[in-house]
Every structure is written in structure tokens, then in C-alpha cells.
Amino acid sequence: MGEFFQITEQCSGQSFHCKAGQSVLKAMESQGLKCVPVGCRGGGCGFCKVTVLSGDYECGKMSRVHAPEEAQAKGEVLACRIYPLTDLIVECRPQPAATLTPHA
């Protein structure tokens, strides 16, 4: 009870605490940080994709389109659906900027 893990996001160098049972994305948001993009918070959109470089965690259900099983096995997961069991180092994937301008 009351157990905290330290999560470090490699690209920004920012770190924050995450309670046992809390998702990494939610912990980040609750501490006012923005180092991982926040989308649906439900494992559906792929916006919060990160690679876990070290540490153990549990996974909730995530869209197989954004986190296929092979990728998940390599630590490519959705931050809104991972729950740390130890301290974690994660790396955020850069996102392509969205526009409404048609290209073709």
C-alpha cells in the first residue's frame, strides 16, 4: 500500500512518481507533465506509445493495431495501459504533426 515507482522519460529527461496500480500516463498527467502525448487514455488511439527500456510492468487491454503482440513483447506499449511493478525508463516516440491540409 502506498508504493510508488519512479518513471523516467528518456527524451525529455523528465521523471515522475507512479502509484502501484496507476497507469504511467495518468501519473504523468496528474503531475502536470507533458513528456508523453495524451490521447484517449483508453488504449485505443496509439497516441501515447512509448518503448519501455527497463523495468517491469503489467499491461491492460490495448488496441492490437497500435500494440501488436510482437511489439508489446519488445516493450513497445501504450503508456495509458501500463502499470509499473518496478521503476521504469521509457522513451516516447515522436509523433507526426496533424494537419487538416489535404495532400492529394
Binding site: C40, C45, S63, L100
Partner: peptide
Amino acid sequence: LGKAIFYHDRALNERFLSVLT
């Protein structure tokens, strides 16, 4: 477009354009 979508904020949020399922 910002105002067209969110009349009060008058600015788009990235999420509206790119978070889809």
C-alpha cells in the same frame, strides 16, 4: 477552423485532429 470547431477556445487541440480509433 479553431473557432469552427471550438467556438469559445477558438483554437484546435491536436487531440481533436489526430486521436482516432
